[in-house]
Nucleic acid binder design. Sequence first.
DNA 1: ATAGGGTTAG
Length: 453
Amino acid sequence: MKDVRLCLLLMQSPSVKLGNCFDLSTPHKVEKTGKRPTACNSIGVHTGSEGSGRVLDLILNLGTDALQRDVSSALEPQLDKWRRHPQAATAVLSGLSKRRLPDLASMVLSFMRQGRVEANVYHYSAAMSACQAGGQWQLALSFLEEMSQFGVAPNRISYSATISAFEKGGQWQLAVSLFKLMLEADVNPDEITCNSLMGTCAKSGQWQFALGFLVEMPYMRLLPDAFSYSTVISACEKGQGQWQLALCLLAGMQQTSARPDEVNYGAAIGACGTGGQWRWSNMLLCGMAESSLRQSLVSYNSAITACEKAGEWNMALRLLTSMRARQAKPDAISFNAVISACEKAGHWQRALGVLCGMPAMSALPDVISHSSVISAFKKGHQWQLALSLLSSMLEVRAMPNEISYNAAISACEKCGQWQHALCVLSQMTDLKVRPDVISYSAAISWMAWSAPW
DNA sequence: ATAGGGTTAG
């Protein structure tokens, strides 16, 4: 019966009817189970995990486009051991999960089934969590379905991992449905399950739902923790203009047992930034020091980004320089945010200056740094500079991508240099960077420009 | 043996 529901879930995919989402309360007994004592692992029992690092390396060396037969032959020597100690396989799957390699994990599972190695809830859960990469939620769901088929009952960790896999694909409706399915299957959620659910809602821009679940947690006898709050605060950022709510949540935390930490502040700084409230962002950054929280690199980066979004290039630059005094070493992201602030304000000289200053501060300019400066050149009608910076990227091992090329193409196009624009476009295809709609439309807009002639 | 949070470019 549960399998049928899961199939329905798969079929309905993007348009699952929600019904009353927040009616999750009472009938489900939610007892927090403490850690169960582990049966094995007593003295003298082999776990079979020795040497699993070597096996993992073997799989990793096959590369991401390995075939099933490569994986199977690499694992063949493990077959006997894995049959006796399925834990050894968990170590490998866990390694693939940490590196977010769902396809390899899937092949390891196939190998296990074919070789009659017991695939249990640990194996499947690890494989599901690997599916968070690149929105591989379909694969995560298929694992969930498959384990039911083989009579392996998913636990709260399996469900949480799958709910998290929905995050990248923006499948919040599926996450909500799966959460309800979990309750119906009498599997009790814990804080992490709820946080995963709220995270998926947050990333899909559903701040109302994220907030709704936060409010619902106590009714499931679950206490929102610092993770829960940061997730919902970051939902406020995605939900644009919800900076007041973000501030309320941060302030509200003071009344709970979940003390605001560095990440909570960072999320609130980001939410204020998206709402154009750079002054609030800066105040929060200062507030961190007052609460004796470390103003970490990411907090600074969020505050700089807030200035960037508001066009406050001057303040962005000041924050960058003040980082050194606070012993927070700016990284490429810090510099890139400042460059982007200068670009927005139309200061191409300054943007270039920041780029050139990076190596001295032991921050290596990357593709984003270069692309932003090329965009600044575009704004300043400096097509020659744009082209020379683009070509210099190849030398500094910052391989230009479609965004870099597009910026250069539009820089040329803006100055009426359509021949150069087409030249860059062909260079792009030569170097196997796929031009997209923007590349073509920028390159061919000269047609409209030259139409009267 | 398995699950969760904040930052950068067109």
